[in-house]
Amino acid sequence: MANYTLDVNGKKSQVEVSEDTPLLWVLRDHLELFGTKYGCGIGQCGACTVHLDGNAIRSCSFPVSAVADKKITTIEGLSADGTHPVQKAWMEVDVPQCGYCQAGQIMTASAFLAQNPNPTDAEIEQAMHGNICRCGTYLRIKKAVKAASQ
């Protein structure tokens, strides 16, 4: 067990966990930030995506020891009130069905658009390849990413 000070959504928090604890479970179990979802635990589905210094990462595969001095943003910190352009686009296009994967989709899309504000369809497909949606909302996701890019 070790003490870590995490910078999550602009707030510093202390946690005492073993060093191999994935960031995902620190967020959910210790910081009670439930928006970041568990889907596969092996970085294959993207449900747990958060931003680490602005880059989209799979929080299920990042041990807490590797993120302690970095800025972490979760879905709860993307905006205070759902007004981030990607969140707005998601609502405008009416993307969610069950909704479980969507926080991860939004976090992948928002990091991607920050680096590539005017992507092509192929670039969007490439960027979103790591995020699975079992309900099959992919076409609306693509539409929402494009809407947010304009």
Binding site: G35, K37, D81, G82, Q87, W90, D94, P96, G99
Partner: peptide, 28 residues
């Protein structure tokens, strides 16, 4: 075309799902 009434809760990551349930004294 009416939008999903829970959209805002979903896109802001609110705890809506079973896996998000947390209660006083709850173990895993």
């Amino acid at each position: 075309a009416i939008h999903n009434v829970d959209n805002k809760k979903i896109v802001t990551g609110q705890p809506l799902f079973g896996i998000d349930v947390k209660k006083e004294g709850m173990l895993i």
